[in-house]
Amino acid sequence: MKNRLKVLRAERDWTQARLADELEVSRQTINAIEKGKFDPSLPLAFKAARLFGLAIEEIFQDEPQP
């Protein structure tokens, strides 16, 4: 799953630690999501969408399996 977390974070000039604080997760979790190594749960994706004022699909996009 692709996501725009890093871009959205950079637009607000936030660090990973700041975003982690906002979403109440660890910085490692934000890093893993940004790198596509970990897909967040639906509640966490909704939380991120609420935080950025966007729809979930504007942040997370499905990637077809090769």
Binding site: E24, V25, S26, Q28, T29, A32, F38, P40, S41, L44
Partner: peptide, 11 residues
């Protein structure tokens, strides 16, 4: 302790 961790830490 486990319930208090975030979802990646729990995984």
């Amino acid at each position: 302790h486990l319930k208090g961790l975030d979802e990646l830490q729990q995984k």
